[in-house]
């Protein structure tokens, strides 16, 4: 018994240490958001909550300005980020599941050529094609629009590949049975493929939502007006260049607020795809 106990203990200790290391900065942020900027500015942040929490959050959420600088209110930035992240996640899923469906289930001329074309874009991340993309978006007049924020990031070779691999595991006989039952390609997609993919969709949604939420470089380029600011770029703009002191209390409150939607998505979708895993079958 004893050696087993010990072996059980080791992973737990490692996990707990890991959690502490990851959780500590978040804890500091959380504490920081409850003190006034003076306390933080002096460099002597206590490790227990202060009394300024409500004020800080209210000001960050709705306020136009901190003590020293002018910001876009967090509620605007969060709405922008939410729209962008949802558009990217849902757009990527919609486009990639349809292209994967085409590549996996249909024989058409140049099928493999299209497949490789999609595959090749994997090698070109956003950063590499950012200048031509910017040019196209600017010419289309999409600067400072939600479309400009989301559309260039929607094409996704990764998700297409993932769905294709999953579709290849759906037995041919299922498609044939549906054909004999009278289901055409659209019905088969809606009635069979989509429900069978729900676990994959849920997992991808989590990953892609966070991917969209955390976008930095692209929103920085295509937004210039304050009311199109996203939260990730917004936070960095709140941190000054050193000419004036920063409103650390507001920055930390904003940071905590910025973490909430991704956390909510993970928590909510986790229940969803655990459910999917439990009654999923092939």
């Amino acid at each position: 018994m004893k050696p087993t106990r010990f072996i059980d203990l080791v992973p737990h200790i490692v996990l707990i240490v890991g959690v502490l290391i990851f959780a500590y900065p978040i804890y500091v942020t959380l504490i920081g958001s409850t003190w006034d900027s003076g306390t933080i500015g002096r460099g002597g942040l206590p490790l227990w909550p202060g009394g300024q929490g409500l004020d800080n959050y209210a000001q960050a959420w709705a306020g136009e300005a901190g003590a020293r600088a002018k910001y876009t209110p967090v509620r605007t930035m969060m709405l922008n980020s939410l729209i962008m992240a949802l558009a990217i996640a849902l757009g990527k899923i919609a486009i990639s599941i349809l292209s994967a469906y085409a590549v996996a289930f249909f024989r058409f001329p140049l099928r493999m050529a299209f497949f490789w074309l999609i595959f090749i874009t994997l090698m070109l991340p956003v950063e590499v094609r950012i200048i031509p993309t910017y040019k196209v978006v600017a010419d289309l007049g999409l600067i400072n629009t939600y479309a400009g924020l989301a559309i260039p990031l929607i094409a996704s070779a990764t998700a297409t590949l993932l769905f294709r691999q999953f579709f290849l595991t759906i037995p041919d006989e299922l498609l044939e049975a549906a054909k004999i039952d009278g289901a055409g390609p659209v019905r088969f997609f809606i009635d069979v493929v989509l429900p069978l993919s729900r676990t994959n969709i849920a997992a991808l949604f989590v990953i892609l939502f966070i991917y969209g939420w955390n976008q930095y470089l692209w929103p920085l380029l295509v937004t210039s007006s304050g009311d199109m600011e996203t939260i990730v770029t917004g936070i960095t703009k709140m941190i000054g260049t050193g000419e004036s002191a920063n409103d650390w209390n507001l920055i930390m409150a904003t940071t905590v607020l910025a973490m909430l939607p991704p956390v909510a998505v993970v928590v909510f979708m986790q229940r969803w795809f655990v459910k999917g895993l439990v009654d999923s079958e092939k």
């Binding site: 037995p171 006989e173 299922l174 044939e176 049975a177 549906a178 004999i180 009635d191 069979v192 429900p195 069978l196 079958e281 092939k282």
Partner: peptide, 13 residues
């Protein structure tokens, strides 16, 4: 026509 497959090909969901 109706067909019965070797692996049944039932819709799992």
């Amino acid at each position: 026509i109706a067909m019965v497959f070797q692996n049944y090909a039932l819709y799992p969901h």
